[in-house]
Every structure is written in C-alpha cells, then in structure tokens.
Amino acid sequence: MDSLLTVKNLNVSFNTYAGEVKAVRGVSFDLGVKEALAMVGESGCGKTVTSKAVMRLLSRSGGIIKEGSRIEFMGQDILGLSTRELNRIRGSKMSMIFQDSMTSLNPTMTIGNQIMENIFTHEKTTRQKARERAIELLKLVEIPNPETRLKNYPHQLSGGMRQRVMIAIALALNPSLLIADEPTTALDVTIQAQLMDLLRSLKERFSMSVILVTHDLGVVADFADKVQVMYAGTIVERGTVDEIFDSPRHPYTWALLSSIPGRAQESKSKLYSLQGTPPDLLLPLQQCPFAPRCQYCMPICKKAIPKENFLTDTHGVACWLQHPMAPKVTPPAGIGGYDHE
C-alpha cells in the first residue's frame, strides 16, 4: 500500500512553569491510502497532540515540535512548509473534525456560510456554485432539508447534526486525510452508531484515509483497520484490529481491554482496574513508561526502555515480555480471542 502520511520520530513538548512537558516521545507511524488508523489511550497519552502535530495545529497552544521529527504528507515535508503553503493543504488535502461541535462551529455564522467559507478559501468560485456544493455536502452527510438547514445557526441544530455539519465542512474539498478527534464522545450511542456508519461510507466513497483518535475501544473495533495504543507519549502496541483485539500482547492493552465489562462477566463482580496513575511527563523516560503500574513488571523493565518488537509486519509491541529470555505470561481471561461468551 502506498503511504500517504509518514511520521518519523515525532517529539512534541510544551513549556510550562513546571518545566518541559514531553507530551509525545518518539512516535513513528505510516498511514496508507484508504486506511483507517485508530489511536487509543487514556487522557494525556499524547494521542490528540500527535494528530494535531500532523496538522501543525500546535503552535497556538504552545506545543513545540522538536528537532529531528519528520512528518511527510503526500511526499511533502509538512514541518518545512510556510504558513501560506500549509493553509493551502489544511482544509483541502487534510482536514480535521473535533470532539466538541458546539465550540468548533462559529455561533454567529449560518452553517451554510461556514461550509462555503472553506470552499472560498481554497477555490475561486461563484457564490451560487459554492451554495450548490454546500447543499450537496449536507445531503451527503444525510441532513434532511439541506436548503433550509443552510440558513440555520449552530445552536438550532442537535449535537449529532452539528457533528454532521463539521464533517461536511471537513469534506468540502475531498481531502485525502481526515483526522477525527473523538468525533462521537459527546454523543449518544444511537447517534454515535449513525455517525460512525456515515464516516465509514464516506471513507469508502472518497477513498480517504482516516485517523481516528478515541478512547472508546468499541468504536475502534468497529471502524479501524489499524490500531496504535499510546501510553505516556509513546506507542506501546500497534497492529491490525484483529491483532490488537484477538491477540493483544502488551500488558497496557490487556488492562484497557479488561476494564470494559464483558458480556460473559458475572454481574457486580470486580472489574479489572488499573492501579496508579500515568507517569509524570516532565521527567525523562528511563524505563518502560508502564512499569510502575504493570503487574508483570520485571527488574529489566525499570532499567531500560523496551524496543519495539515486530511479531508480524504490522504487529509491534514495546514490552520486555517479548524478549526471548522473558517468562511466558498468559493474558488475563476474558480478553482477545480467549473468550467469546
């Protein structure tokens, strides 16, 4: 598969009063054409920062992409582009939808104007043509009565509708890459299911690649081709959906999967819960970041950072348990391929 996006050794830091917070630490990944990649992890693991770095949206929040990081999109070096060149790509070739549609849309503009704004920014076209395009886009995202909806303001729409408008804006110029940052977190399950179905069909129809940032593993299992599990700014495990859900290898992935109550699990029994808190991102990494919370922790884990070990072409795990000298451990029951009721 051709690679659309290549991220190599991405390091992002924020300067705070307490010191330099290293939010993303040496993340590398590839995204192929028409692929759906999911980034999962707890809050603060760097998944959103990584996706924003790809769009170069970090400067305003104080994020600094460190020297040596590389982001290539369609063969272009994103980090070397000027703001003007970036603006030509952002919103047209790659676009992003955010979690909170109420704060992402402009409350003082009709949704029609907001969709058209994006079209005018990138194309020389007449108002009439842009309006037709906006109606077409609203139809595409399955909003009923698009002609009248164009004149609505964001507050007149429900949360699910607003999220659809955001998708319409993002798709206005047929992007090759769509980054969806927790697109359904604020929504109800039924609306979430509708939206994920919509995203899936649009992805096929426009041959888009999608990066889905989420902490909802259920959504990931349904949507993604590839998954990368992030912890403390690093990727601890990556693989295809089947690899991650059927034969996960990293204790952190196990912990994430087992904290969701399974169908087979007895009611009111103890849910698996991960003890402790994620490491302080102010400190340099000298051990496996997960070691202090890992129940399989070995002496080596506290001494050296595990290298990513590829079990297949796609399935990578950064864990000392994968070392040939490590003891064999069985993952907790109830996850992966070990139990389906």
Binding site: A193, A221, E341
Partner: peptide, 12 residues
C-alpha cells in the same frame, strides 16, 4: 435499537 448500537469490543 439502542442495544444494537452499543459498540462492542467482543467481536466474536
């Protein structure tokens, strides 16, 4: 309908 919309990690 509500229950069928639950995204499920147990994909058996």
């Amino acid at each position: 309908a509500l229950f069928s919309a639950i995204p499920d990690v147990h994909r058996g």
